[in-house]
């Protein structure tokens, strides 16, 4: 808009203000925009379902979903489902992410580990881990073991890939500096390589943890009495859209929570970035 105004002024011979063209490409923190998008979308669905423009078979009324959610809360059923799910998520993701980071660092540091493990990781990365669930059930039992294993395995591969990429990207001149001051190998790894790789590791975790939530639901759908996955599966088989959506909302909230957690970690750990 501003440049058309400037363009109009051009016919007189007076000075023209230089057009600003340096904007964009610099993400700012605009938290309310995300909230606004949600509110608008939900309001539209509410309006559509109430006016009959969206049929009850297509989408449930957001207010009904909210009512179902409240019911879940008040009956205490919410925590009955949430508690085992969170346990599975935390244990599985912690196992997968920590071994993933460890193996990724090994690959980043040792040529033999890289030569031996990178092809292996590339081979298991594209396997849909859900397809292996029957195998996990045989290996780790029908109970919690197989669920932990599935989630851990699914978080492991993306974490490995992100971690060794991050280690590769650590500024070599900083490592040379450490060597030139005679720092020990372990000091260089702990004080230079790991902190330098932290940005890459954390952004890798964002993806790995989202995958962990997906796999959590998949694992619970295949055999669990309680858990959000089981709840959604049950609602789906009864075609109870309100409950189905209440379950989906819980998953989305979980995703937002995990993302916020990583955002918090990034703020705390990566404040040194420009």
């Amino acid at each position: 808009m501003a440049d058309t105004a400037a363009g109009k002024k051009r016919d007189s011979d007076g000075p023209i203000e230089v057009r600003f063209r340096g904007g964009g490409f610099a993400p700012r923190s605009l938290r309310w925009v995300g909230v606004a998008v949600f509110v608008v979308l939900i309001a539209m669905v509410q309006w559509g379902t109430e006016s009959g423009w969206i049929s009850a078979l297509t989408l449930p009324k957001p207010t009904d979903v909210l009512a179902t959610f409240r019911e879940l809360w008040e009956s205490g059923l919410l925590f009955k489902h949430l508690q085992p799910s969170l346990t599975r998520l935390v244990i599985g993701a912690a196992l997968g992410a920590s071994t993933g980071i460890a193996i990724g660092v090994l690959i980043g540091l040792f040529s033999y580990a890289r030569a031996g493990l990178v092809p292996l990781v590339a081979a298991i990365f594209p396997i849909p881990k859900i397809a292996l669930l029957p195998l996990f059930v045989i290996w780790f039992g029908i109970d919690e073991g197989s669920k932990y294993a599935l989630i851990a395995f699914g978080t492991f591969t993306p974490t490995v890939v992100a971690t060794y990429g991050a280690v590769d990207n650590v500024d070599r001149s900083l490592i040379r500096m450490g060597q030139s001051f005679g720092l020990s190998w372990s000091s260089i790894v702990r004080k230079i390589v790991l902190p330098g790789a932290m940005p890459g590791i954390l952004s890798g975790l964002r993806i790995s943890l989202a995958i962990a939530i997906i796999l959590l639901v998949a694992a619970e759908m295949l055999g669990a009495e309680y858990g959000i996955g089981a709840y959604i599966l049950e609602a789906g088989s009864l075609y109870d859209l309100e409950r189905l959506f209440a379950g989906v909302v819980i998953l989305s909230l979980l995703g937002v929570l995990v993302s916020a957690l990583i955002g918090f970690l990034e703020k705390r750990l990566l404040g040194w970035r420009i």
């Binding site: 001149s173 500096m177 005679g182 720092l183 020990s184 000091s187 902190p195 990566l270 040194w272």
Partner: peptide
Amino acid sequence: VFQDFALLPWRSVKGNVSLVLED
């Protein structure tokens, strides 16, 4: 002493000096 300074961006001024003493 390097041309590009080679300071650890995640350590303070003090921390960058103490890095080479800790070992």
